[in-house]
């Protein structure tokens, strides 16, 4: 079953490897919105997000021969988008990991979140978090990476990723409650 998932859009990928422009466009159409949203969550600025998406698709199609179905095409492409976004943020000197003085003192007891919480408020709440917290929340909760993958992406240890995530989540809940 897992193998089948890995080979999603195999024929389009194989044709794209040979430079078939139609197949490349079909793949692009299938993934562009998802990639754009990932990039927007990371970059927040439309033009920056578009640049990242463009560069990611160009890199993906030009290096498609190195794609060997070790993951799905979507997750391979997503990783390119994430890495490019992180690089762009670093160039702009925007923190991608929480820095010490940004850390909030969190109460030890966990507070329950109201069950009918509006997703829009969560999106708004994430935007109100410090940049480093935002990245870790996005990568773990929305993009679905585990702490080992996040540690690779952000070049931190998995335990740092874990502790930072918990702090970020608690802060997010605090913010969402006030909205």
């Amino acid at each position: 079953m897992e193998t089948n998932i890995l080979y999603t859009h195999k024929s389009l990928v194989e044709k794209s490897k040979l430079g078939d422009r139609n197949a490349q466009y079909k793949l692009y159409e299938l993934y562009v919105d998802a990639m754009y949203n990932i990039s927007m969550r990371m970059m927040h600025i439309k033009e920056d997000a578009e640049d990242v998406v463009q560069d990611s698709f160009i890199e993906a199609f030009n290096n498609l021969s190195s794609f060997r179905y070790e993951s799905t095409f979507g997750s391979w492409l997503k990783r390119i988008v994430i890495n490019k976004s992180i690089n762009q943020l670093k160039k702009k000197k925007i923190p991608v990991v929480p820095i010490e003085n940004q850390m909030y003192h969190i109460k030890e007891d966990t507070e329950d979140v109201p069950p009918d919480i509006d997703i829009k408020n969560i999106i708004k709440g994430i935007r109100l978090l410090p940049s480093g917290y935002q990245k870790i929340i996005n990568l773990y909760l929305i993009e679905g990476y585990d702490h080992i993958e996040i540690s690779e992406i952000l070049e931190i240890s998995p335990s740092t990723s874990k502790s930072q995530y918990h702090r970020a989540k608690k802060k997010l809940i605090e913010i969402v409650k006030t909205l």
Partner: peptide
Amino acid sequence: FDVHKADKSKL
């Protein structure tokens, strides 16, 4: 969470 739409033809 996917609230944005890409400008497909431009990109």
